[in-house]
Computed example of a mutant assay.
Amino acid sequence: MSAGGGRLKDEGTRTQVIIAGGIAGLVSRFCIAPLDVVKIRLQLQINSPWDAVPHPHHGPVYRGTIPTMRAIVREEGWTALWKGNTPAELLYVCYGGIQFTTYRSTTQLLSRLPRRLPPSVESFISGATAGGIATATTFPLDLLRTRFAAQGNRRIYASLISAIQDITTHEGPAGFFRGYSAAVTQVVPYMGLFFATYETLRVPLAQIDLPFGSRDAAAGVMASVLAKTSVFPLDLVRKRLQVQGPTRQKYVHPNIPEYHGILRTILTILQTKGLRGLYNGLTVSLFKAAPASAITMWTYEMALRVMKETTSGELLP
């Protein structure tokens, strides 16, 4: 990551960045998997707790993060909190490696411009580019993660391989990219805001003595909360679009409407649930995003530092 003040710090080699990014994604995903499942369930929920007339036959009605987690464990067992973990682990490892590598390369290219851009602008551009490329490359894994997490006791896909085969057979290659436009529309401003805020906060936080080298984690938490809240409706739209297709009525929430496109999906939600409907699952999303970003940034910086120390044979300050 580029430091503030317009100077590009030593980021290690491309290989070190890829490895550190992959490790960061792997560790982060393992830690926040249950919250991810809860978030997806709440985002796909049509019958909200505040509805005047509940419809229990249309699937469970979840109320809050902890109650939702308890309901999933009670009805589906502890392992249900890790549904979709295999494609998600692959997603996070690949996404992390691609994201940090692209961020590093873009930052280095911007640093060679005849006239340097402000550090926050450089970070925004690099972050947006990194997020867009990483999302485009790994989107099929994101879709598979969502569909597995949306399964209740009724198994739609028996395994990752069978899911790939089933989607290929019944939906074609385009089936792996349902919700793609919403994902890119969301992730470009999200990652731009995240990295710009992260890099800005690292400078003042560097002056504070926090335990376990947690300055990067603290900056990651604050940057994530701001960026996630700003673009959350698009994340919800992405999830709704990802479960469209022939299996739409087979998930734990079988009453998910048929949606077409970003704008029409947003308008449908606004018309049926109001503005509040676009923020289903925001609380747990922040609970998930904050520690995920903190763990990701802390792990990335620590892994990169260890590799650089090992290579140089000397302890960095």
Rank of each mutant, 00 (worst) to 15 (best):
R240L: 15
Q242H: 01
L282V: 13
A196C: 07
N280A: 15
G192P: 05
G261R: 03
I269T: 10
G274C: 10
D209N: 13
P233R: 01
I256Y: 01
T247P: 00
L267S: 14
T272L: 07
F195K: 14
I256M: 03
L286W: 04
V231Q: 05
K228L: 14
P189L: 09
P211L: 13
L201K: 11
T272P: 00
L201F: 06
W298C: 05
T299H: 01
P211R: 10
Q244H: 02
V284P: 12
L286H: 06
R178T: 01
I266G: 07
G179T: 01
T169E: 13
R202P: 01
L236R: 09
G277E: 08
L241G: 02
A223S: 11
A223P: 04
V203P: 05
D235P: 00
A174C: 09
G281Y: 03
A294K: 11
F194S: 13
V284H: 09
I208Q: 05
F195W: 11
R178F: 02
T265M: 02
T265W: 04
A290P: 06
Q244R: 08
N280G: 13
T197V: 06
L286N: 12
R248L: 12
I295C: 00
L210N: 07
K273S: 13
R178Y: 08
P189R: 00
L282R: 02
Y279M: 07
R202M: 10
T168S: 15
R264W: 07
T168K: 08
A183F: 09
L236K: 14
T169K: 15
L278Q: 06
P189F: 02
V237N: 09
P233G: 04
I269P: 07
Y279V: 10
Y279A: 09
P254D: 03
